[in-house]
Simulated assay, not measured.
Amino acid sequence: MKDSEPLIKYCLERYDDINHELSIFMATVRSWFETHPKLARCSFPTVHSVKSRLKDRQHLEEKVARKLADLAEQPTNEEMFRRLTDLSGVRVLLLHQQQFVTLHTEFLKKTSNDWHLVEPPKAYTWDPESVDFFRKLGVNTELKESHYTSLHYVIRPKAESDVVCEIQVRTLFEEIWGEVDHTLNYPAPTESVACSEQLRVLAKVVGAGSRLVDSIFRTANPAPLAADATEERSELSVEHLAQVTPSTVTPPAATPTIRPSDEGPQDLPEESAQR
């Protein structure tokens, strides 16, 4: 029988020990996005805004308990602590999807020479066209039954460091959905069937909004929005998006894994706009 109490106690103690270093690294990551000459300090910035937070201790306790419940065997204290990859978080907001291209390119340059990528970048999405978009960027995709949508990076200052930061990148429209879902559907899923269905509809409306903003910018500036941009995607209407279901998603290598959302918008920033 698995025992969460010693794991929770250990993880909270380790979290308190490195809290100062977490704060410093988080501030460094946030500043990199906010001051980058090609992403923020330019005539038409890619980054709209940036938020950050440290993990709340109560949420950390809940996270350890959830992760333990998903494991087949009891991990060691340190193994569990290393699984907690969102102790600090930075959220980067963009106006439209095409801006992911520039940001992803610059971020990979940074991690190839400096920060350590803990795992390959991953995009959570329900939209088939978004799957195709991220596939062309070389990013793996995963489907969450909650319709959670975001591009995730997990980094450490160096591979052996205990300090870790989760970076979420999403559009402003996707941020709206995340905040509504976080308020009504996390940590315990809503018991209202109507509310659950409306959240799914909202996800599709948000997808249509992001698609429309993409189209507006392409219309205003017919030239490519970024160097080495992906091939232009066909337009999806609001009516078409309303008919799309998660089962139509086909990721680059295999059918995406469907699993309950346990690391969605609830865990990033802890203030009003935090997960």
Rank of each mutant, 00 (worst) to 15 (best):
L151P: 11
H152A: 06
H152F: 06
Y153W: 12
R156K: 14
R156D: 11
K158P: 03
K158S: 09
A159Y: 04
A159R: 02
E160T: 14
E160C: 09
E160R: 00
D162C: 01
V163M: 03
V164I: 13
E166G: 09
I167R: 00
I167N: 03
Q168L: 11
Q168R: 02
Q168C: 10
Q168P: 13
V169H: 04
V169T: 12
V169N: 01
R170V: 13
T171V: 05
T171M: 01
T171R: 03
T171W: 00
L172S: 12
L172F: 02
F173P: 09
E174S: 08
E175M: 11
I176N: 06
G178S: 08
G178P: 14
G178W: 01
E179H: 02
E179F: 02
V180M: 02
D181H: 06
H182K: 15
H182W: 00
L184T: 12
L184S: 01
L184H: 01
N185A: 05
Y186W: 05
Y186R: 05
Y186S: 13
Y186L: 11
P187M: 05
P187C: 08
A188K: 00
A188H: 00
A188V: 12
A188D: 15
P189V: 15
T190K: 02
T190N: 07
T190A: 09
T190W: 01
S192Q: 03
S192M: 08
S192L: 05
V193A: 15
V193N: 14
V193C: 11
A194V: 15
C195Y: 05
S196R: 01
E197M: 07
E197N: 12
E197S: 11
L199P: 15
L199G: 08
R200P: 08
V201W: 02
V201Q: 14
V201A: 10
L202N: 10
L202V: 07
L202G: 12
A203E: 13
K204E: 14
G207A: 10
G207E: 13
A208D: 14
G209H: 04
G209N: 07
S210L: 04
S210P: 05
R211H: 05
R211E: 15
L212I: 15
L212P: 08
V213D: 07
V213R: 01
D214K: 02
S215K: 09
S215P: 06
I216S: 08
I216F: 11
R218C: 09
T219P: 00
N221G: 04
N221K: 03
P222T: 08
A223F: 03
L225G: 13
A226Q: 06
A226W: 01
A226H: 05
A226N: 08
A227K: 04
D228E: 12
D228L: 03
T230P: 08
T230G: 07
T230W: 03
T230L: 06
E231P: 06
E231Y: 00
E232I: 11
E235G: 06
E235S: 07
E235N: 06
E235R: 00
E235Q: 03
L236H: 07
V238F: 02
